[in-house]
Simulated scan of single mutants.
Amino acid sequence: MYFVDEEYSEQAAFLSAGTFLTNQPWIHKERVIDSYEIICPVDSTLYIESNHIPYAIEAGEILLIPPHTFHRGLKVCEGRLKFHWLHFSGAHLGPKSEEEVIRKINEKDPDEMIILPIYTNKIDSRRFHVMFNQLLDLYQEKKPRSYLDAYLTCLLYELTAEIRSYLIQKASNGNRLQPIQDWIRIHAFEDITLEQIADHFKYNKNYLSRIYKENTGIGISEQIIKFRLKHAKELLTETDLSIIEIASEVGYEDAKYFMRLFKKYVNVTPTEYRKTFYCKHYNKK
Rank of each mutant, 00 (worst) to 15 (best):
P41C: 02
P41F: 02
V42K: 13
D43K: 15
D43Y: 12
S44D: 09
S44Y: 02
S44K: 10
T45D: 06
T45Q: 09
T45H: 06
L46M: 08
L46P: 07
L46S: 05
Y47G: 06
Y47C: 07
I48M: 07
E49I: 14
S50Q: 10
S50G: 12
N51G: 10
N51V: 01
N51K: 08
N51I: 00
H52A: 14
H52R: 14
I53H: 09
P54Q: 09
I57K: 04
I57P: 06
I57Y: 07
E58G: 10
E58K: 15
G60L: 02
G60Y: 04
E61R: 03
E61P: 05
E61C: 02
I62K: 01
I62Q: 04
L63Y: 07
L63I: 08
L63S: 08
L64M: 11
L64G: 00
I65D: 06
I65H: 11
I65C: 08
P66E: 14
P66T: 12
P67I: 14
P67T: 14
P67Y: 10
P67F: 13
P67V: 12
H68I: 06
H68N: 14
H68A: 10
H68W: 09
T69N: 12
F70I: 03
F70K: 15
H71K: 06
R72K: 15
R72N: 11
R72Y: 08
R72F: 09
G73A: 09
G73S: 08
G73R: 06
G73Q: 07
L74D: 05
K75M: 08
K75N: 12
V76P: 00
V76R: 13
V76A: 03
C77V: 14
E78Q: 15
E78R: 11
G79K: 09
G79W: 03
G79P: 07
R80F: 06
R80Q: 14
R80A: 13
L81M: 11
L81T: 05
L81I: 12
L81F: 05
L81Q: 12
K82F: 00
K82R: 15
F83T: 03
H84F: 11
H84I: 02
H84M: 11
W85E: 02
W85F: 15
W85P: 00
L86C: 03
L86V: 06
L86I: 05
H87G: 00
H87Q: 10
H87L: 14
F88P: 04
S89W: 07
S89Q: 14
S89T: 15
S89K: 15
